[in-house]
Amino acid sequence: MKLPVNLSAKLLFLILPAAVLIGCQSTGTKPGESAAIEDKSSAANGATTSAAGDAGAFRGDALDDPAGVLSKRIVYFALDSSEVTQDDRATVSAHARYLTGNPTAAVTLEGHADERGSREYNLALGERRGNAVRQLMLAEGAATKQIQVVSYGEEKPVATGHDEASWHQNRRVEISYTSRK
């Protein structure tokens, strides 16, 4: 179940920047619409970018694009691990670049753990996971004031089963926007 989600996220990550570049080249820019994903080179050039212009492209804030990489707001972890997988790094990078491009945007990173083991250790583990995502975002240029980490440990599971399928879904960091731009 995990693989197709990550795979599609990865594919979107590859496809979307191309769509943005295509959008940049088009002449019909619409005011008030920003790029699906901030492209540093065009931003540095002061270009007003837009995702519009191509049939089927999403109009509006990239955060609202249901097919965009930014729609993925959950990062998953292995048991007792806080290492962000290669697949999820793409998601984290995309959000980091959104934060970099929108300095008034802000996120809370909610760290969670599965139910196994002690509650307080899991509280610490959830924080470590949140911090792992935070470090990656900072490395990509997000500012410290844009990122809050809060851990709920094992207290807020999304899946309530007592098996690996549920535990996998619960070992997570949720990226939650508290301010957009």
Binding site: E120, L123, A124, E127, V149, S151
Partner: peptide
């Protein structure tokens, strides 16, 4: 109520 965790 310090920044970060306050637990155990």
């Amino acid at each position: 109520s310090y920044p970060g965790l306050n637990g155990a």
